[in-house]
Amino acid sequence: MTRLIDFQHADEATRWRAINDDVMGGVSRGHLHMEDGIGVFSGETSLENNGGFASVRREPEAFDLSKTAGLLLRVRGDGRRYQLRLRTDRLFDGGAYRALFQPAAGEWQQFALPWHEFEAVFRGRRLEDAPPFDPGAIQQVGLLIADRTAGPFRLEVDWLDAMERDETPRRKA
């Protein structure tokens, strides 16, 4: 089975770039690297200088998921809340569609994120008049932590895949 994003491919980590709150004066740091075929999004969030977020984005690649029901994500976390963020050309630069998930500490979990759970946001605020999310127009995938908590974080990502329309969403939170 071919996954949308699979960290078994040695070059996958090179496709991700960090964008942290230092772009706005903060001092949080985060990055993505690989350990034994697993993507690891880790670093430390800081609330200093009105900061508090760290993120990584995968280089642009169009995903046409219009015939799917959402995304499946297999992760092992640290108990903190994360966001899976999707960018399309339907929002202005900086806007994204996000779905929240909070894996239990130290436990591999699979999250089903149906399309209706993705909401349009800009700088942490919901965009009330945003165009509806179009799963056929995904251009970029990202991970973000912005849970208003200072301290280290670690999210291990095994894979990301499409959820078929006939799959029953199994959401663990």
Rank of each mutant, 00 (worst) to 15 (best):
M1G: 15
M1W: 08
T2D: 13
R3N: 04
R3W: 00
I5A: 01
I5C: 08
F7P: 07
Q8N: 01
H9F: 12
E12F: 02
E12L: 12
A13D: 05
R15Q: 15
R17P: 08
I19Y: 10
N20P: 02
D22I: 09
V23A: 03
M24Q: 12
S28I: 01
S28M: 01
H31W: 14
H33V: 01
G37H: 07
I38D: 08
G39N: 10
F41Y: 08
F41H: 04
S42N: 11
E44F: 12
T45G: 08
L47A: 12
L47K: 12
E48A: 15
N49F: 10
N50D: 15
A54L: 04
S55Q: 04
R57G: 06
R58H: 14
E59N: 11
D64M: 04
L65N: 02
S66L: 06
S66N: 01
K67G: 02
K67R: 13
A69K: 05
G70Q: 10
G70A: 07
L72K: 15
L73K: 02
V75K: 01
V75A: 01
V75W: 12
R76N: 11
G77L: 00
G77I: 04
G79T: 00
G79I: 09
R81M: 13
Y82H: 01
R87G: 10
R90D: 14
L91K: 03
L91E: 09
L91N: 07
D93A: 15
D93F: 14
D93G: 13
G95N: 03
A96S: 15
A96N: 13
P103G: 08
A104F: 05
A104H: 06
A105N: 06
A105E: 12
A105V: 03
A105C: 06
A105D: 15
G106F: 07
E107K: 14
W108S: 04
Q110E: 15
A112V: 10
A112E: 00
L113Q: 03
P114G: 09
W115E: 00
H116Y: 13
E117Q: 14
F118V: 09
F118N: 08
F118P: 09
E119C: 06
E119A: 15
E119M: 12
A120S: 04
F122D: 03
R125P: 02
R125F: 00
R126P: 01
D129L: 14
D129S: 13
P131G: 09
P131I: 09
P132G: 02
F133A: 12
D134R: 00
P135M: 00
Q140T: 13
L144V: 14
I145Y: 05
I145H: 11
A146F: 00
A146Y: 02
D147K: 06
D147W: 00
R148C: 09
T149I: 11
G151S: 05
G151R: 02
P152W: 06
F153Y: 04
F153L: 04
F153P: 11
R154F: 10
R154Q: 12
D158R: 07
W159A: 06
A162C: 03
E164W: 08
E164H: 14
P169Q: 07
R171M: 10
R171C: 02
R171H: 14
K172C: 14
K172A: 13
